[in-house]
Structure formats: structure tokens, C-alpha cells
Design a protein around this nucleic acid. Structure first.
Length: 469
RNA sequence: UGGACGGUAGCUCAAUGGCAGAGCAACGGACUGUUAAUCCGUCGGUUGGAGGUUCGAGUCCUCCCCGUCCAGCCA
């Protein structure tokens, strides 16, 4: 047997290899159908594309009866043969096998958890180690990768630098939510100070440390030197959130731009989202066709519409006004000064404008200390991008670059200015208006695929009471 | 964390307080250049866990565990 390099299924199906070529395919069998005419059809999958390739094996092969006719779903195989135009319907090319070797058998096909039938997502989460073998998770994985690559490409093409902000932070000043503690102390025998408190001075970092809830404060340091920067990495929130759009561990993209106001920030958010969705439409038509057929009928059309449309923009005050005039019987009546509820977000994006909407200039009392005070003294330059079906996909703001105003806000919110000494330094030395936002990467994948539970768009979801895999 | 709903065969689900079933999968056979193939047959159960009521509990009661959805927190 001549030694040849393996060909990806995607390449073989796309005609990247000329018909008549001898090729080697390595992958897993999705389905096998036998014909008494003395041949079997193996659909072989290797993850390189949504579609499997059909391998035609005949009883002329020495192991036809002993092995090939017994190949179960998800056995690992190496198939050598000739790439030919298919005689059957449903595929352009197939492989006339000259050799089929089973590399790995399936121990017990009867209890193998992934049978070739429809499974509930709920069930698949219980077998997260095997679910990448399904159509849906496979397609999601390729789209997720496509989006991640598109994000880096978008920023790279626009002169941004990727900044690796720390995962472990000793700053307890991020204030974006409950944090996971990082400690090497013996929990059964904690060191105490004289007044009985836990002595974190004895801990690994000599002080309390946590997993990051946001790279924003750190990335601002690099923004005020390198102008256009972004983070893209894991983020941790210890909130007891049990919803289809929250994870305890998720990936966040946080660009930060210098010499920019909130309007430029919104422009950046809109351009980035469009770039990403266009990449998915261009690069993953096979997977998107599957999502449109089986998951969400508008999966493709809504992305096409979004790429071509201008996002709606309105102020928080206008949004409240629209909600009040909607005549809807909301569970919580919208009124100025209170945050926009999920039901309100849905109305705005799904019914009022029927596309993503950027809501800007929120009341200062419901937003973080670092957001820039507007001239009205009542609102801050914050924005949320609301996507139909998902809700908040991006949250951002122009940052308060004026030291006196920042100090005033820190004091107002009962925070300790000493905790922010290095953040304050940015305002002391060459301060400049700047802005940025946080994009929940999994929420982006949700929107792109039409899936509805965030636990199905990350390989191994971490949620309260759940970290099995 | 609060509220609602749920947990029965490998999977998806039935079963008035009275013999635990079907479809799919798997396995065996028939048929077929097949495509979620089709037809026949076989196998398949500690009904989430622990108590309780009852002649009798998958079903009713109590507690616990787990899951999903809605809400809050947010990305």
C-alpha cells in the first residue's frame, strides 16, 4: 500500500482534489447502510465540514464481511480509495474504497450515548464529552471558531493590539460582580490576625486575590499608550445566575479606544458585529444552512439583514418614552431612573425597531463609577447593544477621564479611592477621552447560530452546581 | 437566589391509586446505489434518592438531590 497524506473531507467534497485521485480519509462513521448487492455505504465525518463523505465499500474487500458490515456508528476508520463522481443522489463526490481499516471500534453500540437520532440539548449537556460528535455541536464549534478568528482579524485589520490582561487579579475594585477567590491557604486551618480576621497577608499573593470579572481597568492602561487595544479571554462571575444567557466562566472581548467618545464606541461595536456576522455567512454556509433548517428558520436571513442594516440608536430617555407609549402591560412599568428590564429590552429590539438597537446615556445611579458624566449631570455616557432574542450582547461606555470627576464618583458610590491608585494615575498623566465595551462572546455565538441556551455554545459550560467535565 | 414546571428502557415520551407501555436506537433477518431508507422480529426497567399514607404507590404526602424555564445580577 503506497503511503499517502490524508485528505480532509471538506477538501474532497469541495473538489479540491481532482476526481480519479487516490486519497486517504481519516474520520468517524456516522451511518452505515448495507446493500445485499454486495456493497456498503459509509458516511465518514472528520469535522472539517458539516457534510460527511460517502465511502462505497464492496464485498471485493477482504474484510468486507468480517469487519465492514459490522461497523457501528462512530467507529474510527481510515479509508483509502478513488475519489469519483457519485452515482447516487445527495452528494457530488464519493470514494470507491480499495481499503477500509477500523482504527477504533465502539465498545458497546447498544449503550453508546450518542445514537443517530435527535437528542435534546438538555441530555447532550450530560454527555458533554461526547456531544461534539453531533451535527449541532459540530456546526456550533466551527461557527464559534469562525467568529473568534473574525474578531482577531477585524481588530488586526483596524490597527488594534491584543492585550493579555491578567486572569488572576488582586484588585478588588473591578466591581462588576461576585468574584471567585484564588487562594492557597489551608481552608481547614486559616491563619488569623490578632482581631480574628482571616490573614490574607499569609496567602500566596500577600493579599486577597480573585479571578477576573473584566479586563477593562487593566486594558485602559494599554489604551492610554497604544491607542487601540482589546482583550479576548476568559472571564469569571460567581453570581448564582440560572438563565440561558449566563455562565460562570465565559469569554469576553473588550476593545478600548483612545481619543474617542461614546458615539465612536457605538460605531466600533456596530462595525465589529457586522464584520463578524459577514464572516460567518461567507465562511460557514454549510453550518448556517443546517441552523436555518433545523434550529432557527431565520438564522441566515437575519444575519444578512443585520449586515446590511444600520443599527437603531436611541437614548435611555427616548427608550423609556417609547416603552411608556407602547401601551404594553409590562410586569414592571418602565420609568426614568430604573434600569431597563429584560421584558423591556425584548420589546425594544424585537418589536419596536426589529433589529439590534444601541441604547445610550443611562442615569448615573444605575451605572458603574468609571462611566463618564454627561453635561446634564444626571446621565453617564454608557451604552448597551440589545439584540433580538438575546438581550444585552454588548455593554460599554465612555470612561471618566477627568480626575476630579472620577474621584467624586468613587466617593459618591462609597468606594475607597486608594484601591484605584493606579487607575487614577492614568488620569494624572496625559489623560484623554477614551471609550470601550464588553462583548459576551458566547452571546455572539448564540445570535449567530440561532441556538437559545448559552450552555450549548461553549464546549464545557460552567454554571452553578455544574462543572462535571 | 425567588417563582413555575419536570425527573419512568440507551434516547424521546405514555400509563384513573390496581399486570410498567410505545416510538426511535441497538441486535437478528428481509429488501434496496443507499441518503433520517423501508418491512418483520428480538433484547431492553432499583419509575432521581430517603421516609410516610394505603390491602396496593410511577401516581398521594414530607424532606433531599438534579434539571429546564421565567425573574434578578450582567456579557
Amino acid at each position: 500500500m503506497s503511503k499517502i497524506e490524508p485528505t480532509a473531507v471538506a477538501a474532497a467534497l469541495a473538489g479540491a482534489v481532482p476526481a480519479g485521485s487516490e486519497i486517504l480519509i481519516q474520520g468517524w462513521v456516522r451511518t452505515r447502510r448495507d446493500s445485499k448487492a454486495g456493497l456498503s455505504f459509509l458516511h465518514v465525518h472528520d469535522g472539517s465540514s458539516f457534510d460527511p463523505i460517502q465511502v462505497v465499500a464492496t464485498n471485493a474487500l477482504p474484510n468486507y464481511e468480517s469487519e465492514i458490515q459490522k461497523i457501528p456508528s462512530h467507529a474510527a476508520v481510515e479509508c483509502r480509495g478513488t475519489l469519483v463522481e457519485s452515482q447516487g443522489k445527495g452528494q457530488k463526490f464519493e470514494i470507491q474504497a480499495s481499503d477500509v481499516q477500523v482504527v477504533g471500534w465502539v465498545e458497546d453500540p447498544d449503550t453508546y450515548p450518542i445514537s443517530p437520532k435527535r437528542h435534546s440539548f438538555e441530555y447532550l449537556r450530560e454527555v458533554a464529552h461526547l456531544r461534539p460528535r453531533t451535527n449541532t455541536i459540530g456546526a456550533m464549534t466551527r461557527v464559534r471558531n469562525c467568529l473568534a478568528q473574525a474578531i482577531h482579524r477585524f481588530f488586526h485589520e483596524n490597527g488594534f493590539y491584543w492585550i493579555h490582561t491578567p486572569i488572576i487579579t488582586a484588585s478588588d475594585a473591578e466591581g462588576a460582580g461576585q468574584m471567585f477567590r484564588v487562594s492557597t491557604l489551608d481552608m481547614a486551618n486559616l491563619p488569623r490576625t490578632e482581631d480574628g480576621a482571616i490573614d490574607y497577608g499569609k496567602d500566596f499573593f500577600g493579599r486577597e486575590a480573585h479571578l477576573t470579572v473584566s479586563g477593562q481597568l487593566n486594558v485602559e492602561c494599554y489604551c492610554l499608550a497604544l491607542s487601540k487595544v482589546y482583550t479576548f479571554g476568559p472571564t469569571f462571575r460567581a453570581e448564582n445566575s440560572n438563565t440561558p444567557r449566563h455562565l460562570a466562566e465565559f469569554w469576553m472581548v473588550e476593545p478600548e479606544i483612545a481619543f474617542a467618545d461614546l458615539s465612536k464606541d457605538a460605531d466600533l461595536a456596530e462595525a465589529m458585529l457586522k464584520y463578524c456576522f459577514k464572516a460567518v455567512l461567507d465562511e460557514r454556509p454549510d453550518d448556517m444552512a443546517f441552523f436555518a433548517q433545523r434550529i432557527e428558520p431565520t438564522a441566515i436571513s437575519r444575519l444578512e439583514a443585520l449586515v446590511g442594516a444600520t443599527f437603531a440608536r436611541m437614548t435611555y430617555t427616548e427608550a423609556i418614552d417609547a416603552l411608556q407609549k407602547s401601551g404594553r402591560g409590562f410586569e414592571f412599568a418602565p420609568h426614568w431612573g430604573v434600569d431597563i428590564q429584560t421584558e423591556h429590552e425584548r420589546y425594544l429590539s424585537e418589536e419596536y425597531v426589529k433589529r439590534p438597537v444601541i441604547v445610550m446615556d443611562y442615569p448615573k445611579d444605575i451605572k458603574a463609577f468609571y462611566m463618564r458624566m454627561n453635561d446634564d449631570g444626571k446621565t453617564v455616557a454608557a451604552m448597551d447593544v440589545l439584540a433580538p432574542g438575546i438581550g444585552e450582547i454588548i455593554g460599554g461606555s465612555q470612561r471618566e477621564e477627568r480626575l476630579d470627576m472620577l474621584d467624586k464618583r468613587v466617593a459618591e458610590m462609597g468606594l475607597d479611592g486608594h484601591d484605584y491608585w493606579w487607575y487614577r494615575d492614568l488620569r494624572r498623566y496625559g489623560t484623554v477621552p477614551h471609550a470601550g465595551f464588553g462583548l459576551g462572546f458566547e452571546r455572539l455565538v448564540l445570535y449567530a447560530t440561532g441556538l437559545t441556551n448559552i450552555r450549548d455554545v461553549i464546549p464545557f459550560p460552567r454554571t452553578p452546581k455544574s462543572a462535571e467535565f
